[in-house]
Design a protein around this nucleic acid. Structure first.
Lengths: 254, 254
DNA sequence: GTGCAAAAACTTGTCATACAAGTTGTCTAT
DNA sequence: ATAGACAACTTGTATGACAAGTTTTTGCAC
């Protein structure tokens, strides 16, 4: 990897400058997993101390561009939705009403996701969705009959989100897949909050699984209309829970 | 700001640990502009060196959670779409076909945006959209008659994107607004690429303005169907340009 | 007391050096 | 040829120092 040398920038710090230079190189040859030179080497190239290089690398790591781990060199990484997700969580934390903004957006993205899955899903893509559903069922079965277990409920929510992600993946749109990944954290967080005072029995979870199974079934048959209908029914119920538990007044459906 | 103390984490590094602790505190009290304690103070609290604290702060700065500048303490910052936008640009850079993934997502977000604007737009929200359109017209008028100017064209694209952002803003959904901000960079980039060999005359730009004016008009009248129709016509033409210039085969419309 | 400029006190940015801790490649003994 | 010890490399953290900004305090003139 060939880095260009550059003197000193005006108002910016050296670390920012180095970060920008490395970023440019990463964009130039965007090979995932490719390793950057060692910190000492970078320091020599840019004529700065290793500390400065390290701070630049931390900046890039914060942006999700590279992966740092002890003993190993920095590796170019595909950014995931983590950072965007962090923003969403912060937004929702600062104003809980923003959850509904999120679910509103989510609804239209889900519709598109299912539509694309109907059109583009390969056999292997469907398999992933199927196994995601199987995981949901498994977790639902593990819910004790008598008293509802909170941890199992959270695991179920996690599997639920994964199911929707797998549909986005099957649809083949990378931007959409990314967005679903990014929304994951915020969605689970909002689920958790909405279910603080709301216990769910095993039967409840299993019925949720059945709803999801219907969506999957229609996707397999490439029946867009039916799939969307099943999906919307599912999301409506989920949002209704969210609203009732948080005591917000209902917004018009979109 | 009261930080909790914590011993040592398992596999993670001290810097990551400190970053997580600070993040938790930031989420706890999410006041924009609020200043964090000084690095030395944080180092004392977490019983780590200042170097470690600094690396943790760089991580957070990379995520857009805080703002660092020399001599001043770190300030809590509202993350903007920059990082997400950077990801999109990287994605498109690595695989130009991803542009169509983006436009596909954009289409459905635009539809929702216009729908919400029809329902929720306040008088002042509409005013912002109107002025955005005025800017577009102004730039279009400044396009020289004889030969097409590339810079004017880019300024026009910028104003175009701003118009769509203002509609999202008028719709009142914060997540949607954020997403439009985030897509800005990638959209302009893709526009730029698609118009490398394609000159646009003043009349062309003015007709684009007219198309946008129609959308605005229907939004003002709260006619959702007509607004969406006008919007889709507009987007279709834009995407057709993108496809023809990049020589890709056409995907099915969604 | 007020206003303002100089100075002191903080605070962040960068450097050099040292060592701990993890990873990778090499080399030998079997 | 393989396993394990060992050396070389690499990243993570600490300490101390100083440069370069920013904020607060001080002190003087009025």
């Amino acid at each position: 990897m060939a880095f260009k040398k550059k003197e000193t920038p005006p108002g910016e710090t050296a670390a920012q400058n180095v970060a920008a230079l490395i970023t440019a190189e990463i964009f130039d040859q965007f090979d995932l997993g490719l390793q950057l030179p060692s910190e000492t080497e970078l320091a020599a190239r840019f004529k700065v101390s290793r500390v400065t290089v390290r701070e630049a690398l931390k900046l890039l790591a914060g942006r999700g561009l590279i992966n740092l781990s002890r003993g190993r060199r920095a590796a170019i990484q595909q950014p995931d939705g983590a950072m965007f997700g962090a923003f969403l969580q912060a937004l929702i934390h600062s104003d809980p009403r923003a959850v509904f903004d999120l679910t509103q957006v989510r609804r239209s993205l889900e519709v598109q996701s299912v539509t694309l899955a109907c059109r583009n899903a390969s056999r292997s893509g469907i398999d992933v969705v199927t196994s995601a559903l199987a995981v949901m069922r498994e977790i639902a079965q593990s819910m004790p009959e008598g008293e509802a277990n909170v941890e199992v409920g959270q695991a179920f929510d996690h599997a639920d989100v994964k199911f929707h992600q797998s549909i986005a993946l099957a649809g083949g749109n990378r931007v959409l897949t990314f967005l679903f990944e990014a929304m994951e954290g915020a969605l689970i967080e909002s689920f958790k909050r909405s279910r603080r005072f709301q216990k769910r029995s095993r039967d409840t979870l299993l019925s949720v699984c059945d709803e999801h199974a219907q969506v999957l079934e229609h996707v397999q048959l490439k029946d867009e209309r039916a799939a969307i209908e099943a999906l919307l029914a599912l999301i409506d119920r989920s949002e209704a829970n969210l609203r009732s538990s948080s005591g917000m007044n209902v917004r018009s459906r979109m």
